[in-house]
């Protein structure tokens, strides 16, 4: 017994180390479930406040770029308006994105160098943000909200290995799932497009209608290159993302008009699953 105690005191340091590491591993593994960990992320009020202040400071350096982006967006919107006024029937893409509300927010923290990148925004439940809403920038989709506190919200971006989004090729409507390979923040991979589909470099990739998060036909990127391995029936398509995650400052949270209705519907669906 005494020798056992002596042994334990000798490896006590090692045991303490193992204990701490196990605790870390629990944290790491649990974070696979986005909603589970509430305290240890940047939607925490204190952390969010620090980020908000620093992003206010950093945004000064980007004013020029933000201005030019806004001017671009203005022209684009004005052109669209002209087009709608010119033709009696509504523009089809415009009709698609009707039924969505846009909420303007500022990015207060963002990363591109990790395997699982998250974005933090400065609006929260007080502004009507809920988990499951989409995040878009004027240039394309960005991500989805998974954690919300009173004043802040955060979620994974497309360049997060744990998140996939349904996408389609604009010209022929073939759809697949878009994921990130964890390498370069400018490119993503589109899977599940069968090899009989005719592709060409530069084809536009947009969101498909299979998700209630994003409006159908919202820009994701364009085809950079594609190939298929022998024996595989699907292409391996490299997509150049239209959103530049490195310079993201202003984004919109997008809310489906029927968000609550859909949410309730899904809840009843879950209940049914429990019954059967």
């Amino acid at each position: 017994m005494r020798s056992l105690l002596r042994f334990l005191t000798r490896i006590y340091f090692f045991l303490f180390f193992i204990l701490l590491e196990v605790f870390c591993l629990i944290l790491i593994v649990n974070f696979n479930n986005y909603q589970k960990i509430v305290f240890t992320n940047s939607t925490n009020n204190f952390i969010g406040d620090i980020y908000k202040k620093s992003s206010a400071f950093y945004s000064i350096f980007n004013l020029k770029e933000i201005n030019s982006n806004l001017a671009d967006e203005n022209t684009r919107l004005r052109n669209r308006l002209e087009k709608i006024q010119a033709s009696d029937k509504t523009d089809s893409t415009f009709a698609d994105s009707a039924g969505y509300i846009f909420i303007a927010t500022k990015v207060i923290s963002n990363s591109v160098n990790l395997r699982n990148n998250y974005i933090t925004l400065d609006k929260g439940t007080k502004d009507g943000i809920k988990t499951g809403m989409g995040i878009i920038s004027p240039n394309g989709i960005v991500g989805i909200i998974t954690n919300v506190s009173d004043h802040f919200s955060m979620g994974p971006t497309i360049i997060n290995k744990k998140w996939k989004v349904s996408a389609k090729i604009k010209k022929n409507n073939y759809f697949g799932s878009l994921s990130w390979d964890g390498k370069d923040y400018r490119y993503a991979i589109l899977n599940e497009i069968p090899i009989h589909v005719k592709l060409s470099i530069g084809d536009t990739i947009v969101t498909s209608s299979y998700s209630s998060v994003f409006p159908e036909g919202y820009l994701i990127g364009e085809i950079e290159s594609f190939n298929h391995k022998k024996g595989y029936n699907f292409y391996n398509i490299k997509i150049r993302l239209s959103t530049n995650f490195m310079t993201l400052r202003h984004v919109n949270i997008i809310k489906n008009f029927y968000f609550n209705e859909l949410e309730n519907l899904q809840k009843t669906g879950d209940k049914d699953e429990n019954i059967y």
Partner: peptide
């Protein structure tokens, strides 16, 4: 970790 949304890493 708390700041960079990478709990435990």
């Amino acid at each position: 970790d708390i700041f960079s949304n990478t709990p435990g890493i």
